[in-house]
Amino acid sequence: MLLLAPMDGLTHVAFRRLVAAYGPPDLFYTEMVSVRAVVFQPPERDPYLRHTETDRPLIAQLAGREPELFEEAVRRLEERFDFAGYDLNLGCTRGRARRQGWGAALMEEPELARKIAAAVRRATRKPLSAKLRSAPGHDLRRLLTLAEGLLAEGVDTLVLHPRAPEEGLKRPPRWEEIATLKRETGARVVGNGEILSPDDAIRMLETTGCDGVMIGRASLLRPWIFRDVRALLKGEPPPEPPDPLEPVEILARNLGFLPGEWREKRFILWLFWYLQNFPFGLYYFGQVQRTRGIPQKIALLKDLLTPERIPPYPVRIRQNR
Rank of each mutant, 00 (worst) to 15 (best):
G154D: 09
D46R: 09
N254G: 09
D228N: 06
R125P: 04
P6H: 12
P314M: 08
Q319M: 13
A299V: 03
L132N: 09
V74Y: 15
G186I: 08
G260M: 04
P242Y: 02
D8C: 07
I59N: 00
T207L: 12
F278W: 12
V13R: 08
A201D: 14
R227P: 07
L2Y: 09
G212L: 07
E166L: 01
F257T: 14
E184I: 09
G260I: 04
Y313L: 14
W270Q: 06
A21N: 09
G101Q: 11
A84T: 03
L3N: 10
P42V: 10
R98F: 12
L181F: 03
L146R: 11
Q287H: 14
A147G: 02
R292G: 09
R183L: 15
L255H: 01
A164Y: 10
M204G: 12
L2I: 05
P247R: 06
W102T: 04
T185P: 01
E177F: 02
M7Q: 03
P242M: 05
P24H: 07
V159L: 04
V35W: 14
E246R: 11
P43G: 15
R16I: 08
I294S: 01
V19W: 10
D303G: 13
E177W: 02
P223D: 07
K115H: 14
L3F: 10
K297M: 06
T207G: 05
A187E: 03
L196T: 03
L2W: 15
E148G: 00
A113E: 09
E78N: 11
D139P: 00
P247M: 00
T291I: 08
L269G: 07
L258E: 10
E53W: 14
A21H: 15
P239A: 09
A164N: 05
L232A: 11
P110R: 11
A147E: 04
L3G: 13
P198V: 04
P241C: 03
L205C: 05
R98T: 06
P43M: 05
P237D: 05
T185M: 08
W262V: 03
I250R: 13
L27W: 15
C92I: 04
R174P: 02
G293V: 01
A113W: 12
G286R: 15
L77Y: 00
R203A: 15
E72L: 07
T30I: 05
A123K: 01
T11A: 00
Y48W: 13
R96T: 06
G235P: 00
L282F: 09
E249M: 11
E44L: 11
L150M: 05
R316L: 13
G103N: 13
V159R: 00
W102G: 06
I268H: 09
